[in-house]
């Protein structure tokens, strides 16, 4: 198994785990004509949710971009994102996982990766940039698991030289 030397010293512990309380899931349907991630963040915020685990169960997409990983030529990090790949619809989302929490600037961030099928039946997948996934008229369906008592929040990670979601205890 190949490992990579990160820009910063390894941090401990190597596995972080915080316990969140059992929660009632929320199923939500998003109407077409809006951005998938921005729509999910706004809809969940309306219900007072800023921390959640999200599964996108279905989405019909009119136009979208996604990013895949690449080596970082600057050497500042071991990997970065390459240029976006744009797909014209109809694009069918067949699975996506997301984590919702406060991003580096404190605004809500939905970190989401998805696998989709393009109009020609080809599989694609990667990181979804917020604002670049326009839903078609079929909209989207998602299942959100609220995270209470503990959740993810972005913080600078000196090992990888990235701001990353870290498990944190939440204060009431």
């Amino acid at each position: 198994m190949r490992t990579l030397t990160q820009p910063g010293a390894p941090l401990q512990p190597r596995r972080l785990l915080e316990w969140a309380a059992p929660a009632t899931d929320l199923r939500l349907c998003l109407a077409g004509g809006q951005d998938l991630l921005c729509g999910l963040v706004a809809a969940l915020a309306e219900r007072g949710l800023r921390h959640a685990a999200v599964q996108v169960i279905a989405a019909e997409i009119a136009r979208m971009a996604y990013l895949t990983g690449a080596e970082d030529p600057s050497g500042a990090r071991v990997a970065t994102y390459g240029p976006p790949t744009w797909l014209d619809g109809p694009v069918t989302l067949i699975g996506a996982n997301g984590i919702l929490g406060p991003g580096p600037d404190g605004d809500s961030l939905l970190h989401c990766h998805a696998v989709v099928v393009d109009a020609a039946g080809r599989l694609h997948g990667g990181h979804l940039p917020p604002g670049d996934v326009l839903l078609a008229s079929g909209g989207a369906v998602a299942l959100a698991t609220p995270l209470r008592e503990a959740a993810f929040a972005a913080a600078y990670d000196s090992e990888t030289n990235y701001p990353l979601f870290q498990p944190q205890r939440l204060t009431a």
Binding site: R15, L16, L17, A21, T145, L147, F152, E159, P167
Partner: peptide
């Protein structure tokens, strides 16, 4: 219970 987990590089 729900476990909020991060695995490092």
């Amino acid at each position: 219970r729900i476990a909020v987990v991060r695995i490092r590089p």
